[in-house]
Design a protein around this nucleic acid. Structure first.
Lengths: 193, 193
DNA sequence: ACCTGAACACCGTTCAAGT
DNA sequence: ACCTGAACACCGTTCAAGT
């Protein structure tokens, strides 16, 4: 019976460590981008570097865990958009939301696009990508059925396009007009009518 | 008179070191991207790290010097394009050439866009950007005059768009179709008729 | 004047040693 | 089983010492 107690105690420790690491990563990635020092994250979490590596063997695994936490925002956004009658507007709204989501952590576009383009299903970020691309596909297909979007595109294409806009947004803060124009350029490209 | 001789000798040394550094950087940046280790570049050049820093105080300054060396390719490309009668095709050709130019070193888009968007004329890469954006403006203006390009765009907008395509191209090699589709998406956005 | 290499502070990652 | 902190190899950057 004390095996159960000690088991419970150990688990509590592990869970607490995991939560501390995730919280510290959320803060550091949020302020310094996804390239933030993992050593600094471990230090802020009050654990040794090896503990961080045990929980999250790669930086991408840590990022994937963070993204999973923010998933609810995306789901809420989807419920909102599904009320819209105009499939073109729903697609546009989804892509704007995706762009906002990418704004969570600076530098997030790079690993996500790399994971998506590699086609490697074992990549730590493969799950996150898959989810985002599938949803994009869903809105795109609806819009295409209504003749509101070009037919020769798929979800990955638009996922990549949004990543590119987010990446540009992350390269500077002075000049917001350029980002808006790039977004418009894309909209002219994929929307019809 | 031996002051002149020693001066000449010292200059030869400096020039040789500069050339060795540039050559090593060309090789390393070419194979590992613009984020390559500057220490490794200095080692390959056979100079101490401080010598590299004396010649090129920042990574961007070194990159700017490398880009200046490749400038002739761009000028040749311009001469070629100026023969075209269709201003829309000339613009498209210029942007394709720009994309190719960005392919010289992986990761080149990021510092260039950052420099361009910052608007800082003292930035080490400001000169390189200025040159590229001006040329883009020239082809865009011609195309706009012929009604072949959207009027609400400027050279910086298209420079950024091309940077984004190049950035995507650098995120993976497996999947070349995605890059082509992104490029087409942009062309639908900025070309008219 | 220019170069050298040592020096400092930092980071990613791993491993033996602890509990 | 899990954690710790020392350890290793690497890097960017600077500085005293050399020529």
């Amino acid at each position: 019976m004390n095996t159960e107690a000690s088991l419970r105690k150990e688990r509590a420790d592990v869970i607490r460590n995991r939560a501390k690491i995730l919280h510290a990563a959320e803060v550091h990635f949020g302020s310094s981008g996804v390239g933030a020092s993992l050593e600094a994250v471990a230090r802020a979490a009050g654990v040794g570097p090896a503990t961080l590596y045990r929980h999250f063997p790669t930086r991408e695994a840590l990022l994937a865990a963070l993204l999973r936490i923010h998933r609810d925002r995306l789901l809420a956004r989807q419920r909102e958009l599904d009320e819209l009658s105009d499939a073109g507007e729903a697609l546009r709204g989804w892509l704007l939301g995706l762009e906002e989501y990418f704004g969570l952590f600076q530098g997030i576009s790079e690993p996500l696009v790399a994971a998506a383009r590699s086609g490697d299903t074992d990549h730590p970020l493969a799950g996150s990508c898959q989810e985002l691309i599938s949803a994009t596909d869903r809105y795109l297909t609806s819009a295409q059925r209504d003749g509101r979007a070009r037919p020769d595109l798929d979800g990955l294409d638009l996922f990549i396009a949004v990543s590119a806009v987010s990446w540009i947004a992350g390269t500077g803060t002075a000049d917001t007009a350029s980002v808006a124009k790039l977004r418009t350029l894309f909209e002219f490209g994929y929307l019809t009518e």
